[in-house]
Nucleic acid binder design. Structure first.
Length: 504
RNA sequence: GCUCCGGUCGUAUAGCCUGGUCAAGUAUUCCGGCCUUUCGAGCCGGAGGUCGCGGGUUCAAAUCCCGCCCGGAGCACCA
């Protein structure tokens, strides 16, 4: 037991970063494109980058990479949404930058690159160029002089080239084994009169590519350790050329494998966005989505995501995730502190004959934590009759067993089941007898003291029912457990209580 | 065209770098039990893998090397 605990504690720390002693302070960054809210997979880069910065008492930088106003168009509201997501995860950043506000810097370095003879403005058609580069041959533009290139560059900036008519390329090895790395594009023209940028409008028409802006900024901001998905591995090759041209030293780069969701699930932002626009999802926090917003709404705790990420580690292998996996972590976090309440879905009326008296059932909010207190459920008996509600599913149980114990109340025996009414009679009060008879325990509600509730399930379907009136003590946002149903988060209270289902 | 990664209980994974303490850990699933009260949470116990295949190195291999088979992911004036 002790040994196990030690091992668990061990598994919960991150492995050391490479070459930390080479740097004064460790600086990491997270660099999202604000074209969508964050999703589950991105939490990994965030936590790892953030945790390492904290672990080494370094700095953690948030940098918005919004340099494609056309294809990966940034959206104003997502800048804040992303900040909120990161804060929700529990991470704070020490510095923030927005690339679209740094354009003059990129232009400055573009010029330097050209002056070094390491970059040139290429006006070839993409197709033609591709054919040449596949053969490892230079295009005519590559041979232009520095002066000619500077001139072309100025013309580019002045807007004399349209989209696709000119790009600034970085000179690489024409025979680089990966053709997609050869002579990569550093800047391209984007017609911002047609596709204005949410922050700078149509002020610029020449935009740096990810490869240029990201690579450059990592140096300018003094990033020492880059932690990113391995889909960026080939970016490394490109960046290396840039660093070589400028004579810089490349940061330590760690690439981890992708997180994949089981069958059907996608974390692709563009796919999700398309589906939302098509009305297939209700919004970015639709419970079917793997966005942080959706998980948050469902009551998944950031600690659960955090633990999972630390446990999985930083290997380059792809990892298939199952929701069950995440739920297991979340249950661990949520179980000890979730208050328990009765929720009856698909309610059926239960008429109890021979009820000897009215009851006040005192039920613990948590079965193993008396310190969390009790709630009271009143059951009124009139002329030996009490009226309750139970789940339709439990009627079957009652039918097959004939007798059942109403949790924390009393035991009953089935008399008859009709269309929408189940009649039983009071059998006995003691729990001991229920145990002796091995009676199933079912939950219930007094018909006159319960409130309408709705639970939004992970597949966006909804379950209707009633909660005990003690729900009034629950705060919006709180995660509770509906006994024998599952963990849910109180989402809103209007004319009815709306919950989002997390997991069982 | 190029690059990267994987093949370990039913499922998802840890371990592999720094060979032995690994006849292999965890979660989930399944089964059984417990709980003054959750057939659905919790707790306890059990079942279930000989680590893709073949060969090699070694006193010793899931762990190193070679070959084979199968599978996954990614890159291109997106980030």
């Amino acid at each position: 037991m002790l040994a196990r605990r030690e091992r668990e504690a061990e598994a919960k720390t991150l492995p050391p970063l490479p070459n930390v002693d080479k740097y004064k302070t460790v600086v990491t960054r997270y660099a999202p494109n604000p074209d969508f809210v964050l999703h589950f997979g991105q939490a990994r880069a965030i936590y790892l980058s953030h945790d390492y910065a904290r672990m080494y008492k370094g700095r953690f930088i948030l940098r918005f990479e919004d340099t494609d106003p056309k294809n990966k168009k940034p959206v104003l509201e997502y800048y804040d949404a992303i900040r909120e997501d990161i804060r929700w995860l529990g991470c704070r950043w020490d510095e923030e930058h927005i690339q679209s506000l740094r354009m003059p810097i990129y232009y400055e370095y573009a010029r330097k690159l050209i002056e070094l003879g390491a970059g040139y403005v290429c006006t070839c058609e993409a197709k033609t160029f591709k054919q040449l580069v596949l053969k490892g041959e230079p295009c005519p533009c590559r041979g232009l002089t520095v002066e000619e290139n500077l001139e072309r560059w100025d013309r580019m900036l002045e807007g004399l080239y349209g989209e696709g008519e000119a790009v600034l390329r970085v000179k690489t090895d024409l025979n680089h084994p990966n053709p997609s790395v050869r002579e990569w594009v550093a800047f391209r023209v984007i017609d911002t009169s047609r596709n204005p940028h949410p922050l700078v409008g149509d002020k610029y028409t020449v935009w740096p590519t990810y490869h240029f802006a990201n690579g450059l900024d990592d140096h300018l901001m003094g990033i020492t350790h880059i932690i990113r998905g391995k889909e960026f591995l080939s970016a490394l090759d490109r960046h290396l050329y840039l660093y070589k041209h400028f004579g810089w030293r490349y940061p330590e780069a760690i690439h981890y494998g992708r997180w994949m969701l089981p069958k059907g699930g996608t974390m692709s932002k563009s796919k999700i966005l398309k589906a939302i626009k098509a009305g297939l999802f209700k919004g970015v926090d639709d419970p079917r989505l793997p966005t942080l917003a959706a998980l948050r709404r469902r009551g998944i705790q950031p600690e659960a995501i955090h633990r999972m990420i630390i446990d999985v580690g930083v290997k380059q292998a792809e990892v298939s995730l199952s929701w069950e996996n995440l739920y297991a972590y979340n249950r661990q976090v949520v179980e000890p502190r979730a208050r328990r309440l009765f929720f009856v879905h698909d309610p059926v009326k239960l008429l109890v004959h021979k009820t000897p008296k009215s009851y006040e059932a005192k039920v613990r909010f948590h079965p193993s934590r008396p310190d969390m207190g009790y709630r009271t459920i009143h059951v009124k008996a009139e002329d030996g009759l009490s009226r309750l509600l139970i789940c339709k599913d439990d009627v079957k149980l009652l039918e097959s067993r004939g007798m059942v114990r109403l949790m924390e109340l009393f035991n009953v025996r089935l008399l008859k089941v009709s269309e929408d009414l189940v009649e039983v009679e009071f059998l006995s009060e003691g729990y001991g007898e229920a145990r002796r008879l091995r009676l199933p325990l079912i939950h219930w509600l007094p018909e006159d003291r319960c409130l309408k509730a709705r639970v939004v399930m992970p597949d966006a379907s909804e379950v209707e029912g009633f909660v005990e009136d003690n729900v009034a003590q629950v705060e919006v946002g709180e995660v509770i457990q509906f006994e024998r149903f599952g963990f849910v988060r109180l989402d809103s209270v209007d004319d009815e209580y709306v919950f989002y289902y997390a997991h069982k």
